[in-house]
């Protein structure tokens, strides 16, 4: 699915400017990494795509469907085709992994049936498939709270995959994970993007991960797009420009010396 921003602006009810005149076209199947300091509008950008944050100016279309003024039912139908994963995983930790993954099938289940948890056999099969794809199918009946952070994020990816999405959004998906797990989760996202051709938009603030995984890097500062190019083009001076300061060890996830070179 193609995502098109045309002069998109977001002003929050409290007057804070989230996005300011953003124009972008994200073609089908691309792996896009959005970078910027916290507060630069990365999160807002990603959340406008599935309508979690309403657009207040300009025009945003996903596969030709306008998000501005979309009705609740239309918005739900669109969200069903867009998977999302979050920094803090957002699992219901008190219930089983399976129940969490099946939440990705709620959009395809009638309300009365879904209230009873009466999912179809096909939906359960989809959920198992999704768990297999992230390699934790053996945890299906465990409580989500018993899993490590990396495993919980994989369950969250499986939940998004169970939607059979055409777009995958990820809002700082590795910010709560240790460096090796972060790389592994990013590799999972990349593999899914390559294998299933799902358009992927990921927020990151680690420049080394951004360069390694992004087909395309979008730099944001103060709600505006200040860089749009490939990983090779995004050298340290570009990142210094995006961040508006010189780079520090905090900006990379790999802590070995020379990572900043």
């Amino acid at each position: 699915m193609v995502i098109e921003f045309d002069g998109v602006g977001v002003t929050y009810p409290n007057g804070v400017r989230g996005l300011d005149g953003v124009s972008l076209t994200i073609p089908d199947g691309q792996f896009v990494v959005v970078v910027g300091l916290s507060g630069a509008g990365k999160s807002t950008l990603v959340r406008t795509i599935n309508g979690l944050v309403p657009v207040t100016a300009g025009r945003l279309t996903v596969n030709g469907h306008a998000l501005n003024g979309a009705r609740r039912r239309e918005l739900r139908a669109l969200r069903a085709r867009i998977g999302m994963i979050f920094q803090s995983f957002n699992l219901v930790t008190r219930t089983s992994v399976m129940n969490n993954v099946l939440m990705g099938r709620l959009h395809a289940t009638g309300t009365p049936r879904s209230l009873l948890g009466w999912y179809s056999a096909a939906d359960k099969e989809t959920a198992f498939d999704a768990l297999e794809r992230v390699g934790i199918v053996e945890k299906a009946w465990q409580r989500a709270s018993t899993l490590s952070g990396g495993q919980q994020q994989r369950v969250a990816i499986a939940r998004a995959l169970a939607q059979k999405p055409e777009i995958m959004l990820a809002d700082e998906p590795v910010a709560s994970l240790d460096p090796p797990t972060a790389s592994a989760v990013m590799s999972d996202l990349q593999r899914i993007n390559r294998e299933l051709g799902i358009t992927t938009v990921v927020n990151l603030h680690f420049l080394d991960l951004a360069r390694r995984f992004g087909d395309r890097i979008i730099g944001m500062r103060a709600g505006k797009v200040v860089f749009d190019g490939t990983g090779e083009e995004a050298d340290d001076s570009v990142f210094e420009d995006i961040y508006g300061r010189s780079l520090t060890a905090e900006d990379v996830i790999a802590k070995e010396p020379g990572a900043l070179a």
């Binding site: 979690l52 739900r76 969200r79 803090s88 957002n90 939440m103 959009h107 939940r159 939607q163």
Partner: peptide, 12 residues
């Protein structure tokens, strides 16, 4: 968080 997740997944 989970409420937002179900919302993002198209749940009513």
């Amino acid at each position: 968080g989970p409420v937002e997740a179900v919302e993002a997944a198209g749940g009513n």
